[in-house]
Structures are given as structure tokens and as C-alpha cells.
Amino acid sequence: MKSESLWFIFINASLINNFVLAYFLGICPFLGVSAKMETATKMGGAVTFVMLISSMCAYGIHALLVAVNAPFLQLISYIVVIASTVQLVEMFIKKISPTLFRALGIFLPLITTNCAILGLALFQTNKGYGFIESFVYALGAGAGFTLALVLIAGLREQLEFAEVPNTVKGTALTLLIAGILSLTFMGFSGLGS
């Protein structure tokens, strides 16, 4: 695994094994805040930021836990780091842009329970990535998450004007689109070999 180039790690995390469409991580915000393009991009930015910080912290924690021989604390310490990072981002956004703070609403604190972030930390530990590799991996995952979110937001904005039967409206329709997007992203799997 050590021989993977940084470029490959990035492409792998963002396109080939897209966190949302191939690993099903971070579905909640994917369904929740993807109604408008603007919130979608900003949510993507916030998630990417939290990913970067928590991935770097996770690298340090993993080294420390290996040193003191306490791997069973891994999950607990990761989640604490993520929760504090999210708290930080929340305070930051509240100060910088109260409008955005209101637009993101409940989904901002819910970044803590975004599986994409914890999943990223766990995957990078499993794959044995070094510091730089982890950083690039987090960057790729964040980019992939933002891409998926923006794509589906764009589609949903268009669908506002379409006439759909009442039964299909809402989550079911979003899931159908997500399925088609996921099929499309399978086309990228050729890039890996």
C-alpha cells in the first residue's frame, strides 16, 4: 500500500471510491442539505475542513495509542476529536456568517455524526497511511463529498420545476437520482487499474 502515489490516493478517494456514492458514508447530510446549491457547497466546505483537521489528529492519536498499547480506545478518542473540531467550526461559522449558520441549521452539529468523517479516520488507520498520505486522502474524500453534494443539489434544483407524482416526491426521488449518480460514478472504476 505504501507505493500508492499521492495523486492516485486523491483520485481514489474522490472519484473511484467516492465516499457518498460508493461507500455510503455521509448519507444523512447528503439527503438533508442537498436541496439548494448554495448550502450544499458551503456544507461541503465545512465537512472538508473538519475532515482535514480530524484526519491529522487521528494520525497523531493512532501513533500515541499504538505507543501506549491501548487500541481499544481508538474509537472513543477519534469521536471526541471530531466532536471538538465540529464545535470549533460551529463557533467559527456563527461568528463569520450568521445567515449560513441558520441555513445549515441542525445539520451543522450533526457533522459530528457524519459517518464520512469517522469513516475516513478509520480507513486511513486501516490502510496504514502516513501523515502526508492521510492529508491527501482527507482532501480527496472532502472533494468527493462536496462533488456528490453539489451534483445532487443541482439536479434537485432542476426537479423543483418538474411535475412529479405526489408519491414519488421527497426522499424516494432523491434516492433514485442518487442511484443513477452512483451508476455513473462506477464508470470511474476503470481509472484504478
Binding site: 456514492l21 460508493a22 461507500y23 455510503f24 405526489n166 408519491t167 414519488v168 421527497g170 426522499t171 424516494a172 426521488l173 434516492l175 433514485l176 442518487a178 442511484g179 443513477i180 452512483s182 451508476l183 462506477m186
Partner: peptide, 21 residues
Amino acid sequence: LPAGGFFTLAVWLLLFNVVNQ
């Protein structure tokens, strides 16, 4: 494949919608 998961869940949600309606 991943896409199948999305499709299956969408169809189940549809069924639930229809029944509730």
C-alpha cells in the same frame, strides 16, 4: 452494487408512501 442499494431503498420508500396515502 452500491447503486442497487439506493434503488431498493427508493422502491421501499415508495411502497411506504403509497400505503400511507
